[in-house]
Design a protein around this nucleic acid. Structure first.
Lengths: 239, 239
DNA sequence: ACTATTTATGGTCGACCTGACCTTAACCGC
DNA sequence: GCGGTTAAGGTCAGGTCGACCATAAATAGT
């Protein structure tokens, strides 16, 4: 960092925004929150929710505010982290706009209310989106791709999978998170063994949940650990 | 992303910079490149090299240009990746400045030449820096901390450790990279077994290097793999 | 030339973890 | 009670890991 700001107004200044890739699991699918843009550029195209960072707030606070505005959900219950900055010169036809993309994970969230500036917000299945990466405005297709790759990796080394689950959950529900995000089946028995062995991943509540059919499942809540030791490796250890 | 840029000039616009945490290994220590600031704010304090992103270049290109300007080294030989955005409102007393921090790794680099705007550039041992986190200007202490944590994690799951080594290197040199970055000793024999087992991590050149004393060491070059499978876990697997 | 020293490289062994698979437990509807 | 269904626990061979020991190949000293 160097150089002085004074006297450079109008030159090499950028609009800084935050964009949100909000993932949840709905109807057995991984879904991301999109809005239909009502203004140019990319009017009518789908895009990630987001907006300007205000002058008094940090980047994380801006992301949290947008998250609240778009989903109406208490941000304290969602996992939110910075994904990275996207600032290619041509990404916005109006001029230099640098966006700080964030990644949010939450349990099956309500259908978003009509937010302040988001005319039509809805959940879109991620799988379809990946097949048509240019369906989104700006470089939001790449942001979604990067966000998904980040989540897939974090499931291996962290305990964020519980962010997709409600307050209490069964180990089968937690396994479904892994299976959906990774897109591959896991052995229920081995999964259970690793989850319960890993220190601080989940804690038993002592309660059970009756099933539509079959033995009732024990309920768990998230444990204090944030890092997973030992990690869950998804595949290809033995090439 | 929404809202229009036009008409908002002067309001909620930010200066966007790139800052670089450039790590190398010198004299058996992990070192980071610092400059002594000659201007306000933080005049006389040490800071990370960096500068404005120009209007025509991407964030990565800006980081690469600054890297070239500060070190004078061919950027193609260095590992460069984005670390994250830092934009707290108070991080720069002149006003809103959002910096996109980047992380660069390289083999024992030359003492930097007197760059364009970097009066005094020098290598500082990271260990001392971590003890005095407020020694650096802006929030650069936190950036260095985050960058080191990123490197420590990446050594587990990627092959970037070879970025600290010259074109050809011995396995002992590669092990020293891990030991220095992680700050703990590794068993030479077990390390060798894991490195040579991991597919595409290193390739033997068939040549040897004489030692000051002892058996000469075989020389290797970086392999094509970027991800490490299976990963190197540094500790605490068995709690 | 021989020996001690130093460093690189390779081997061994028990403990642990993993994946594949099987068995038992607990609930439902009929 | 019986079969169906899902949860939960057990078994076992093979792989991996860390700790440790053994060998190889060079140098320096006597």
């Amino acid at each position: 960092m160097d150089d002085r700001l004074t006297g450079a107004v109008g030159v090499e200044l950028s609009l800084v925004t935050v964009d949100l890739a909000i993932f949840t699991i709905r109807n057995g699918e991984l879904a991301v929150l999109l809005i239909d843009r009502g203004k140019e550029p990319f009017s009518g195209r789908a895009a990630l929710p987001g907006g300007r960072v205000r002058s008094h707030e940090t980047l994380g606070e801006g992301a949290q505010r947008e998250l609240q505005e778009e989903t109406g959900v208490d941000p304290g219950r969602l996992h939110l982290e910075q994904l990275g900055a996207y600032g290619d010169p041509g990404r916005d036809p109006r001029g230099r706009v640098v966006t700080i993309a964030h990644l949010a994970l939450g349990p099956d969230l309500p259908v978003p209310r009509g937010g302040t500036d988001a005319a039509h917000a809805y959940w879109a299945p991620v799988e379809e989106l990946l097949a048509t990466p240019d369906a989104l405005a700006f470089d939001h297709g790449r942001i979604v791709t990067d966000a998904l790759e980040r989540v897939r990796g974090e499931l291996e080394y962290t305990t964020v999978a519980t962010a997709f689950c409600p307050d209490v959950f069964t180990l089968t529900e937690l396994r479904h998170v892994y299976e959906l995000v990774w897109g591959l089946p896991l052995d229920p028995s081995n999964f259970r063994r690793k989850v319960t062995r890993a220190d601080g991943f989940v804690e038993p509540t002592g309660q059970q949940r009756p099933q539509p059919a079959g033995r009732p499942a024990a309920l768990y809540r998230p444990g204090p650990a944030r890092l997973l030791s030992p990690p869950f490796l998804r595949a290809a250890v033995h090439q």
